[in-house]
């Protein structure tokens, strides 16, 4: 079985909100100096899901695929250290500022070019834009089923079985391979690579493909071909300052808060 896991590197957003900055003119998040990008956490869970399948069937091949700048190589190397077999970096100036349709187009085209892929695993959403559509998009463009937001991923006799997280419960769905699955944090913590694995992964070659390697060009990946536009990006400011409720005793503070809530018709 050949599994491809999509891994994205994102700006570290879990920083003190005071150091989170947006360049509104460029419509981009600006990372503070010295803060390195991180692996999108749901994608690491995707790697973990693939490694659990490989634990069960050691002849499984796991390829880590990342689209992004040269630094995305770090995310691939980390996943290789977790036990994945091969790394593929999709990098090209044309891959910058894509919308989700274009992202899914690039990733699905790479899956087609790879050798006989049975299973694509993605995080349920990337923690930068939190859109949560890339996995489904890859599936649609490949014509495969998508089993989304999984907490458990199994393969039995050529059928993928995924336990999905619903807002009010769980459901088990299955579909014959090839499929795309997206995974959620309920699957469990991703394994941490051992030093020896990190050193081994550092020596592994990562394949690099450009847009031309995938047969894609500006007619599909240019600004004009976007289906979605980003009109604005900003940091929301709360409309009002927090009113600190005072009182001589905790009881008085509590009473004053209850009165405020009542006056504001919130209770």
């Amino acid at each position: 079985m050949h599994i491809v896991v999509c891994v994205k590197q994102v700006p570290d957003w879990d920083i003190p909100p005071s150091s989170f900055k947006v360049d509104e003119a460029a419509k981009r998040v600006v990372s503070p100096p010295g803060v390195a990008p991180v692996r999108s956490q749901f994608d690491e869970i995707g790697v973990e899901a693939a490694m659990r399948l490989k634990d069960q069937s050691p002849d499984t091949k796991v390829t880590i695929m990342s689209m992004g700048p040269e630094e995305a190589r770090d995310a691939i190397k980390h996943s290789l250290a977790m036990g994945a077999d091969e790394g593929l970096l999709l990098t090209d100036p044309l891959f910058e500022d894509l919308d989700w349709y274009q992202i899914a187009l690039v990733l699905s085209t790479a899956v087609k070019k790879l050798d006989a892929v049975d299973f694509v695993i993605c995080g349920r959403q990337a923690v930068d834009w939190d859109m949560g559509v890339t996995g489904t998009g890859i599936a649609e463009l490949l014509g495969w089923p998508a089993l989304t937001i999984g907490k458990d991923v199994q393969v039995n006799d050529g059928t993928a079985v995924v336990e999905r997280v619903l807002m009010d419960g769980f459901e088990t769905v299955e579909a014959p391979l090839p499929v795309v699955a997206t995974v959620s944090n309920e699957l469990g913590e991703p394994r941490y690579p051992k030093l020896q694995q990190i050193m081994k992964a550092a020596r592994k070659q990562v394949t690099v493909w450009s847009a031309a390697d995938l047969g894609l060009d500006a007619s599909q990946l240019g600004e004009e071909a976007r289906k979605l536009t980003l009109e604005r990006l900003y940091i929301p400011v709360s409309d009002s300052e927090c009113e600190i409720i005072e009182g001589d005793t905790p009881e008085e503070k509590a009473q004053n808060l209850a009165r405020k809530l009542s006056e504001a018709k919130l209770i």
Binding site: P11, W13, F20, D130, L233, I235
Partner: peptide, 16 residues
């Protein structure tokens, strides 16, 4: 829509 873990808001439009 909220993004970046609720730190930012994006305004998007669909062209198609």
């Amino acid at each position: 829509r909220p993004c970046y873990g609720g730190n930012a808001r994006a305004v998007n439009a669909v062209r198609t």
